[in-house]
Amino acid sequence: MEYTQLGNSGLTVSKVCLGTMTYGDQNTEAEAHAQLDYAMAQGINFIDTAEMYPVPPKAETYTRTETMVGTWLKKQPRDRVILGSKAAGPRRGMDWIRGGPPALDRANIRAAIEGSLKRLQTDYIDVYQLHWPERNVPMFGQYQFDPAQELDAGGRQVQWVSIRNQLETLAELIQEGKVRAIGLSNEQPWGLMEFLRIAGEYGLPRVASVQNCYNLINRGMEFGMSEVLYRENVGLLAYSPLAFGHLSGKYIDDPEAKGRVTMFLGYAQRYKKPGVVPASAAYTQLARAHGLTPVQLALSFVYHRWFVSSTIIGATTMAQLKQNIDAWQTRLTPELVQEIEHLHLTMMNPAP
């Protein structure tokens, strides 16, 4: 395993991060702990979770993931684990999350972290992230910005909690020792630049990382965001590197294969778009033509991109987890990367 400094945080994280969003739904506590133990044994020191997990989000499973991670974390030397978690923002239909938080205001951010700290059985979170922006922004499979969403039902301008106020609350948490570094998730270039600008203007904490979707069929991070990451020293935590299993090849071999796509119908609209299956099939064929598994191709591509600080992997079985971690050792040849680029230019970003 290799390690890197996460943005300007001073935190040294493994280049592979273990995601936990299946714990409490698809995985039992015993399975979750086995995965965490195995990942740590392979040199992974970075664990990512969220108050909302597991997903798909449901009232009956909300907070289970953090609780399971917490019972494991309690038995670990705390300084050996870099722990990331996330505060959910406003979103319709999620009234079970703190009563349906109307905003990322001081009260809600504080309520979120206090709940997470209790469930995780720790005094601090290393990387505390805002799970999605409060303001109107396309995310979770949406890809077009809609100014009409700036208005409420009465045609009045929607009022968002200012980025400055959000940063001021996060600054309090850092000063109190409850957070070591802050991050964003599902963010756009304008939002990241505003967080950085306002932090500099008012002496507030700088964002260390952005956790966004990035994979062979969703390379939107390369359009504008990668330059921001480079010039502002912000780390990318790439999630969904296998595109909900589409890039593993299993749904190409068997469209009814067991997985989130077939278990949770209607979930993950990002991967319901018409170009996803043809592109997934093309990358599956390319991998096998070069003697690689589709998993090796897809993960190695993300693992070793210059702007990716750490890649968040997830698995429901130990066999999957081992395969995903082992793929770190795979290096793509320049010739194979060129073939990937040809496919990318032919069928660009079918899952934005």
Results as ranks from 00 to 15, higher is better:
residue 2 E to C: 02
residue 8 N to I: 10
residue 12 T to M: 13
residue 13 V to L: 11
residue 13 V to G: 07
residue 13 V to Q: 06
residue 16 V to Q: 15
residue 16 V to E: 03
residue 19 G to N: 07
residue 21 M to V: 06
residue 23 Y to E: 04
residue 25 D to E: 13
residue 27 N to S: 15
residue 28 T to G: 11
residue 32 A to C: 11
residue 34 A to T: 10
residue 36 L to C: 07
residue 37 D to N: 15
residue 38 Y to S: 05
residue 43 G to Q: 06
residue 46 F to T: 00
residue 49 T to R: 10
residue 49 T to L: 12
residue 52 M to R: 06
residue 55 V to M: 14
residue 56 P to E: 12
residue 56 P to V: 13
residue 63 T to A: 07
residue 65 T to F: 09
residue 68 M to S: 05
residue 71 T to V: 14
residue 77 P to F: 11
residue 94 M to I: 12
residue 95 D to L: 09
residue 95 D to A: 15
residue 99 G to R: 10
residue 103 A to M: 04
residue 104 L to F: 06
residue 106 R to N: 08
residue 107 A to L: 12
residue 109 I to P: 00
residue 112 A to I: 05
residue 112 A to V: 05
residue 112 A to R: 02
residue 120 L to G: 03
residue 122 T to Y: 07
residue 123 D to W: 05
residue 126 D to F: 08
residue 130 L to M: 15
residue 133 P to W: 08
residue 135 R to P: 00
residue 137 V to F: 10
residue 139 M to P: 00
residue 144 Q to I: 11
residue 145 F to C: 04
residue 150 E to C: 09
residue 152 D to T: 07
residue 153 A to R: 13
residue 154 G to E: 13
residue 155 G to W: 11
residue 156 R to L: 14
residue 160 W to V: 13
residue 163 I to Q: 04
residue 163 I to L: 13
residue 166 Q to L: 10
residue 168 E to F: 05
residue 173 L to K: 02
residue 177 G to A: 13
residue 179 V to F: 09
residue 180 R to L: 13
residue 182 I to D: 06
residue 183 G to P: 06
residue 184 L to V: 10
residue 185 S to C: 15
residue 187 E to Q: 11
residue 191 G to P: 05
residue 191 G to A: 12
residue 192 L to T: 05
residue 192 L to R: 06
residue 192 L to D: 03
residue 193 M to F: 04
residue 195 F to E: 04
residue 204 L to P: 00
residue 206 R to K: 14
residue 208 A to V: 07
residue 211 Q to D: 07
residue 212 N to D: 14
residue 216 L to R: 06
residue 219 R to T: 08
residue 220 G to I: 02
residue 227 E to K: 12
residue 231 R to L: 09
residue 233 N to P: 00
residue 236 L to S: 01
residue 238 A to H: 03
residue 241 P to F: 09
residue 242 L to M: 14
residue 242 L to C: 05
residue 244 F to A: 11
residue 245 G to A: 06
residue 250 K to P: 00
residue 258 K to G: 02
residue 258 K to P: 00
residue 271 Y to C: 01
residue 273 K to E: 04
residue 277 V to M: 12
residue 277 V to D: 02
residue 281 A to P: 00
residue 281 A to T: 13
residue 284 T to L: 07
residue 285 Q to N: 08
residue 285 Q to V: 05
residue 286 L to N: 05
residue 286 L to W: 09
residue 297 L to G: 04
residue 302 V to W: 02
residue 302 V to R: 01
residue 302 V to E: 02
residue 308 V to S: 03
residue 318 M to H: 12
residue 320 Q to Y: 02
residue 321 L to F: 04
residue 323 Q to I: 01
residue 325 I to M: 07
residue 329 Q to C: 01
residue 331 R to Y: 08
residue 339 E to G: 01
residue 341 E to G: 00
residue 342 H to K: 15
residue 342 H to T: 15
residue 342 H to I: 15
residue 347 M to I: 08
residue 350 P to H: 10
residue 351 A to K: 03
